[in-house]
Amino acid sequence: MLDMQHISKVYRTELVETHALRDLNLTVAEGEFVAVTGPSGSGKTTFLNIAGLLESADGGHYRLDGVDVGSLGDDARARIRNQKIGFIFQGFNLIPDLDVFDNVDVPLRYRGFAARERRARIERALELVGLAARQRHLPSQLSGGQQQRVAIARAIAGEPRFLLADEPTGNLDSLMARQIMDLLGEINRSGTTIVLVTHDPELARRAHRNIHVMDGEVTDLKPFAPRPAGAPVAVA
């Protein structure tokens, strides 16, 4: 699904060069749930940006779903983001002036679906996240957990093959965080590949595989032992 080889990224200012990623190698198979952990400044967000085609790598090769995305133009990258990738952001990134329905509708409109198709997808996604009754609420009228569930609905409404989650529970209390992680697990079980970026090792334990990034490099790749069913998980 995701194949990154020798990926590097350098941010330059007039005075400083920051090597955010150095020779990063990573392969994620279809249907995997991978957690990327690391301390602040380790390069997690840069990895997520490059993996999600939000920015380009300076060096290396990146194939997403068999496509060499390094050579694609801006519009083609936008199309792949729209059709193949679902994003879940730490701060939810809902559009405050749009209600829940219209927020979930945003990527579907860019996809060019007809109104009836969009409505069916939005209702299905909101049903899945348990917010079917809140379609006409504004984000400001929802709790943090509900907002993140709207963001998840937005991410999955287009049925992407690849979900990128950036600290999806970072702004939530423990109960809501658990609900969100349960939801992500459910989505993964339905076949969607998930890469979760987090600094929280407890959250990372919910993934099939944990990748530790330090100073822009993958320092550790290890599978986790499956968590016993029903066992409680401590979350931040």
């Binding site: 999600g52 939000l54 801006d74 519009d75 936008a78 199309r79 983001r81 729209n82 059709q83 994003f87 952001f89 990134n93 559009i95 405050p96 945003v106 990527p107 860019y110 996809r111 937005r154």
Partner: peptide
Amino acid sequence: RKQIGTRRALGARRAD
């Protein structure tokens, strides 16, 4: 800016 960046992340082209 954040909202526009989010729209771009969700698949909006520059022209959109």
